[in-house]
């Protein structure tokens, strides 16, 4: 209702603390949902009823910027968002995780987000948001690959291709430097756009584009495993709400977050395999490519972006973990 949402500590002991957990995916099999349900399960069972978690799968908003707004206003307590949408809150440093070819593989990614860099980023987010956002875990939405009307054998093949990807920022710059034309198409319209030559290709992770049948279109059936983005997603909590909890509750809350992280990643990794196989079974062609020239092209862009937002030290740390 009206007014303040802070839960007084004394009150918390008697009445369960309600946690509104929300993400933007509506499918019940989505890894986000699996992760959130794990969070609910652990938080409720380990807290002796101190927590009551309700999970909203897309019903509190399907846009990420809306989820961030909700978290800030206290209309949601735990949300998942991507770096792009976080940086609009004014915390530019988050863009680090969106740089192309920042990570070599999931192992490298895991070392970064679960290690020192992840801790620093979490601290930065909490400070720069005036103690409003607390990172309680790093999730992933998979590794993104190219898919289009022809298999890539070298970077040259991208020349003049209209690719559906971000049309601003470092990512757009990267695709432009490779010779392609970044084009903006709404996700729900992408199937049509691929089918009708509005774009010649796109890039995403297997579970996402295979579920949308993009691999069944002529402009989407050649998949080249470019692996240009091992995506990071932030599992964020309302920091004020967290601070109001008893130390014991905080411990349980974080335990639940850890369990959720594991569940989400496991589900995603499994689905990535599953959907890759579905794509192949449906007749899509998958090929691999030497990533070295792609990585080489990305390096100066990474340097430039890191310098611009003043996170050269973080970038170095990420690279050192390779």
């Amino acid at each position: 209702g009206c007014g303040s949402k802070e839960v007084a500590t004394e009150e918390a002991a008697s009445k369960p603390i309600k946690i509104v957990a929300a993400h933007n995916q509506t499918s019940p099999e989505n890894p986000y949902q699996i992760g959130m349900l794990k969070f609910k399960e652990v938080a409720e069972s380990k807290s002796n009823g101190a927590f009551e978690v309700e999970v909203f799968a897309g019903s509190l908003g399907t846009s990420e910027s809306e989820l961030v707004e909700k978290l800030k206003l206290g209309a949601a307590d735990v949300v998942v968002v991507s770096p792009g949408f976080m940086s609009q809150t004014g915390i530019e440093e988050i863009d680090l995780f969106a740089l192309p070819y920042l990570f070599n593989n999931y192992e490298h990614w895991g070392k970064v987000v679960d290690g020192e860099v992840g801790k620093k980023m979490a601290k930065l987010i909490q400070e720069k948001s005036n103690n409003e956002f607390k990172v309680i875990g790093y999730w992933t939405a998979g590794v993104r690959h190219y898919y289009g009307n022809k298999p890539l054998t070298s970077m040259k093949d991208l020349e003049g291709m209209k690719i559906r990807t971000q049309t601003s920022g470092v990512v757009a710059k990267y695709w432009t430097q490779m010779g392609s034309i970044p084009t903006s198409v709404a996700w729900g319209e992408l199937y049509q756009s691929l089918q009708q030559n509005i774009v010649d290709g796109a890039e995403n992770a297997y579970p996402y584009f295979v579920q949308q049948n993009h691999h069944k279109t002529d402009n989407g059936k050649y998949i080249t495993e470019t692996g240009h983005d091992y995506t990071t997603r932030f599992l964020l909590a309302n920091a004020k709400k967290f601070d109001a909890m008893t130390p014991e509750q905080q411990k349980t809350f974080l335990e639940a977050a850890d369990a959720a992280v594991k569940a989400e990643r496991d589900a995603l990794y499994a689905q990535e395999e599953e959907y890759k196989n579905i794509a192949i079974k449906d007749g899509a062609e998958v090929n691999e490519i030497d990533r070295a020239p792609f990585i080489e092209l990305a390096q100066p862009l990474q340097d430039e972006a890191a310098k611009e937002i003043g996170i050269e030290d973080l970038l170095k740390q990420v690279r050192d973990l390779k």
């Binding site: 209702g1 949402k5 206290g74």
Partner: peptide, 13 residues
């Protein structure tokens, strides 16, 4: 405004 856990400002946002 009557529902618990949703701040009323959500109406305008």
């Amino acid at each position: 405004s009557a529902a618990p856990y949703i701040p009323t400002v959500t109406v305008v946002t």
